[in-house]
Simulated scan of single mutants.
Amino acid sequence: MTETSPRPLRVLAAMSGGVDSAVAAARAAEAGHDVTGVHLALSANPQSFRTGARGCCTVEDSRDARRAADVIGIPFYVWDLAERFREDVVEDFVAEYEAGRTPNPCLRCNEKIKFAALLDKALALGFDAVCTGHYAKVVTLPDGSRELHRASDTAKDQSYVLGVLDERQLAHAMFPLGDTLTTKDEIRAEAERRGLAVAKKPDSHDICFIADGDTQGFLAARLGRAEGDIVDEAGNRLGGHDGAYGFTIGQRKGLRIGHPAPDGKPRYVLDISPVDNTVTVGPAEALDVTALTAIRPRWCGRAPEGPGTYTAQLRAHGGETEVTAALEGDELRVAFTEPVRGVAPGQAIVLYDGTRVVGSATIATTTRRDRTTAPTA
């Protein structure tokens, strides 16, 4: 759904309580659309989520969203999606770490909550589109199909966490900030001009459902203490841990290894094995990944036919790298032009063709560079 639709639409604006979603709702209303604001209650105990003007999920965020809706002059409601959020995002997050993978809960929330549960409910109630404060663009082609593109301001682009949206969802998505070539300070200045009290509210970050920011403590409380070994590539025990779920591929700090590597260089987490509760560490060059297999592909439009050359993004705030990719059955096979590091099962890989988002998939396995025949980094 393009932001410059020729006819007024019934728009449901998801208002987190932050400045971006408030300005997005205001712009949609100013464009002549019939806008209704909604705040998603995602916790049965909102006090347990982050507080302190984080812009996501707390009681104060709900109040900030309501005040913004009042200033804009649009109806406002709070919808309880706590149970759905717990099942689709929080429990998925815990299960992925338990299995030795590294999930992205914000991407999962966009897929399962904002553009599945919320959109389905909006369409059932007669709304035409869901509006959010994401920085991304939906482009409508002459044949009526839609494409998802990076935001005009690539520094603020959030298309990576929207790479899970399919063509049906894109047809009902509205991102009024996507064409904004302005700084965040200018967005805040616009909010202030509009009389929105959230103009100076800090941005949200980290994981909203982990109140104190202690991911390892959050997981330990749910998965329990599970002592295991930290070993080197040869299987030699270097130390111990309280739960393999507390580590991520590429991690350097907090390994609690009592003695340095023989060459004196830092060691990194190379592998996490939930089967034997073992964490393997080694040198940085052992992290070099040359290829991967990804599952559960989701296409932002028609699925590509045959192998193709794309750029790929592997983290929400990461850069792009050139790849070749091909769909083989239900799996996406990806080869990197140059080795990359910090690639972990559970992460999402998002493919781009220029600024267009082709689609995304969840990394299942990786292939490391053979250091016996290839030079080290």
Rank of each mutant, 00 (worst) to 15 (best):
T2D: 11
R7E: 10
L12I: 05
G17M: 10
G18Y: 09
D20W: 12
V23T: 11
A28H: 06
H33Y: 05
D34R: 14
V35Q: 13
A44F: 01
G52E: 05
R54L: 06
C56D: 14
C57A: 14
D61Q: 14
D64T: 01
R67V: 06
A68G: 02
D70P: 02
I74M: 09
V78M: 13
V78N: 12
E83I: 01
F85V: 05
F85H: 15
A99V: 06
A99E: 04
G100P: 09
R108S: 06
I113N: 03
K114D: 07
D128K: 06
H134Q: 07
A136I: 01
S145P: 14
R150G: 09
S159C: 05
G163H: 04
H172R: 14
T182W: 02
K184V: 00
E190S: 08
K200Y: 01
S204N: 11
Q216H: 05
L219E: 01
A220V: 02
R225N: 07
A234R: 10
R237W: 02
R237C: 07
H241S: 12
D242K: 10
Y245T: 06
R252Q: 05
G254N: 14
H259Q: 15
P260C: 02
D263C: 03
P274I: 06
D276I: 04
V281F: 10
A284E: 12
V289E: 13
T290G: 10
A303G: 00
T311P: 07
A312D: 04
T321H: 15
E322Y: 12
L327H: 02
E328W: 00
L332P: 08
R333W: 03
A335W: 06
V340I: 15
I349L: 15
G359F: 03
I363P: 09
T365V: 08
T366P: 05
R371C: 12
T372L: 14
A377W: 14
